[in-house]
Computed example of a mutant assay.
Amino acid sequence: MEIRNYQASDERGWVRCRVLSFLDTAYYDDVHREKEKFENPSIELVAEKDNQIVGLIDIEYDTEDEKVCSEEGTGGMIWHLAVHPDYQNEGIGSQLMERASEEAIKLNLEFLEAWTRDAGNSAAWFEKNAYRQVDEYYHLYLSDQDMAHTVQPGDDNLQPLYMFAQYTGDNIEQFESIERKYKCMCYIRNL
């Protein structure tokens, strides 16, 4: 396996790896047809094995003019960390993280920040890799039935059928009947 910088010619393999790696997670519907472009500088690495992209990590980092991370100091936001399902549990994610951390240290970044959901094993993976939880809120996916009970009526010409929402309040219990409800947690690792 080779870990190297992302190249434009990797885009199709990158998208395929990301989609397949998210398929059995709480992010299964966060599908993109092309790789995101970042406004700030970034560390973009891929793991290649058997002539295909089997892992990826994208970290956009703070500059003097533009902050990406929520914490004080100069950090890097991990937007994507994914390993193709056929290659998981081989240490590829850890190797990508190690290489990205080395690059971040060279850039004088003070920390890496990642947001993930409580479903699946990603939170445990970050904790195992020296990240500490510093914040949380909820992601809610409301169906039309959910919204009939929780969303106040407004414009009769607008009839939402589905809603994705962030909830930062203290009364998450009011949404106990919502099937797709995830705690979204922020993890920080000092470099």
Rank of each mutant, 00 (worst) to 15 (best):
A148D: 10
S143F: 02
A26M: 10
D86S: 12
F175D: 01
M1L: 11
V46P: 01
E11Q: 12
D65K: 12
E176L: 03
I43T: 01
E11T: 04
H32T: 11
C186M: 10
V19N: 13
D30K: 11
A82E: 00
A26L: 07
D135P: 01
Y141V: 13
V134E: 15
S70C: 10
Q7S: 11
A124R: 15
S21Q: 06
Q7N: 13
R16M: 10
F38K: 09
L140G: 02
L191D: 00
R12S: 14
A8F: 10
A148L: 09
I178R: 02
T150D: 08
S122T: 15
N121W: 09
D58I: 05
E2H: 10
S94V: 08
Q152L: 13
I178D: 03
I3T: 07
A148W: 01
E44P: 01
L107Q: 04
E48K: 13
E2N: 15
D30I: 10
N89D: 11
S9H: 11
F164E: 15
A104L: 03
E102N: 14
A124M: 10
N108I: 00
E98F: 08
H139N: 14
L81V: 11
K183S: 09
L140N: 03
N51V: 07
E39M: 09
T63D: 04
D29I: 03
Q166K: 15
